[in-house]
Amino acid sequence: MSIQRPPIDISTLLRFERKSIAAALNLLEDRRPARQAQALALLDDLTAFPAPAHIVGMTGPPGVGKSSLISRLIEIAACEDRRLAVVAVDPSSKVSGGALLGDRGRMQVPPHAPVYIRSFAARDRLGGLSREAFAAVFLLRHLCDVVIVETVGVGQSETDVVHIADTVVLVVQPFSGDVLQFIKAGVMEIPDILAVNKADDELLARKAMADVQAALSLERQAWARPVLAVSAATNLHLEDLDAAIRAHHHHLVSHDTLTPKRTEQTLAWATSEVLHEVGRRGLQTLGGPDGVKHFWAQQPAQWSERHRLDALLGSLHWHHTHTE
């Protein structure tokens, strides 16, 4: 098979030229086979370059202020000239397939700041991340200092973001009852940092913080999960939030856990993609998660995650047609 080289010059990507980044992401989304091949080639080419970005997931119920908080983090990053990308995911309508992508409307970008924002519809992934969105993050992490992924997350089924983020920030708002809900739903296992937003009023925030802290107090972990009362509206404790996010990154790096964590996440992602595509029985034919792991390790070193996934799913279809 002769793969046409991607029509995108990697050096323009590495220079953070947003026009090129957009073209690359258009390519990653393009389903036409020739374009898909180019997209895989592009991602493979990028594996030769480091992926320095810290990937931060911002998740939480609708309307708690995720985008508004990201806007403030953008401001802070811009002051230090850090390159930042946002992947903002909004749900798709089950009826029409359409989606309203409104997050960027809440994000102010200071003029000339190196910031790239891209919205994705969740498409057939319930409030989670589409394959295209994952691919986008795989690409962006070679180009930026920080990639922030915004997803709506209210239940266990909507936690795709843990498969991609180094650091997960769960955003809630005071008195919403969310916290109790989360504990029940097991969502509390997920975050590395908890942000209680709309704490415009310290008094309000304190009560909600108490709830959250109570929920977390049982755990014993190397990383003591910070709970912060913040306000995107009044700029309350936002520097602290930024610092906590960076501290978690530092924690991962200094404990040498970042790389193994990412490997584990990638495998979990691949497994969930298999489940999405062919269900439990399909996964079994592959030998379960261990089979996935085994398959993964056998692929050429220069293949990107996205490329390996394609190969994996390809082998599956093969299995399928030939075992039935």
Partner: peptide
């Protein structure tokens, strides 16, 4: 547009 199935960016 959304109800027709498009992905719509609108920022106000």
């Amino acid at each position: 547009c959304r109800d027709a199935g498009m992905e719509v960016v609108y920022e106000g």
